[in-house]
Amino acid sequence: MSGKPWKENEFNDLCADKYGALDLMKKPFITAAIFLFSLVVGIPSSMGQAGDYEPPRLSTGTPDLNGIWQALNAANYDVEPHIARPAMQLREGPHSMLPDVPVLALGAVGAVPGGMGVITNGGRIPYTAEARELKEENHSQWVDRDPEIKCYMPGVPRATYLPFPFQIFQNDSSVFIAYEFAGAVREIYMRDVGPAETDSWMGQSVGRWENDTLVVEVTGQNDQTWFDRAGSHHTHQLVVTERYTMIGPNHIQYEATMEDPNVFVEPWTISMPLYRRIEDGARLMDFKCVEFVEELLFGGFRRDPLPR
């Protein structure tokens, strides 16, 4: 985990950090304190990592995460708390912010739904001042900069809460995730494979089981992916620690803690339920999307360019 020195308010952080973004296993004294504290004040068990739910298991005894899953929230628009706004890219109007020209035609379809945010504590991304400035600039130039628009592989954790399902394939020795968006994939190596040899879009994922939680450390991501459509960015030093915990037959509690000393002043954690796609015939559909962005990316190089 973070390896950073704890701050004075660490205990408060830890209490608020309901889903274990901080590694409780390595801090037995604190763990015991929390346990006693929770007995006294009665923290609901659903806030804990394991809870009371007894998940289906593979023959090896690990929880069975197989299935098609999808997030259902506004995180891909903006991971921070936000009220609805007119568009994903805005400009100053005479009286209020208005949709910027490139997205004007989309009307209500292009508006941003509000969301309470997915960052634990209801907080914002702890960007440095410079990084916050870049995020705002990214947001103001969203159509030109968001890698989602260009159908680039989304990176982690954004792949999880894009408005597309993903499928977990898990057997006794392997965990593999296929995402509908851009046909992105990643193997979660359940063994030490050493440091990532070079950066990639989806990074290198190494997983382990902590009790009934699949903990995945993602390193080696490049600096090209974002967290949302609000310009939230990171650098190649991003380390993401994900936690997948089944909290019911059709629900996974998903958490991801982000560390990146270049842009964040401290680690931050998102938490959200993932929902199993339970309808008959649920499956990942084709969404390579490369063919959908050719006009955007290469249309200007046609022999007879179409009107733009």
């Binding site: 680039y152 592989m153 190596y189 494979v193 990639s200 879009w201 989806m202 490369v290």
Partner: peptide, 10 residues
Amino acid sequence: NRVYEYACHE
């Protein structure tokens, strides 16, 4: 061998 990411479009 392990399969390394084949980022083509990107």
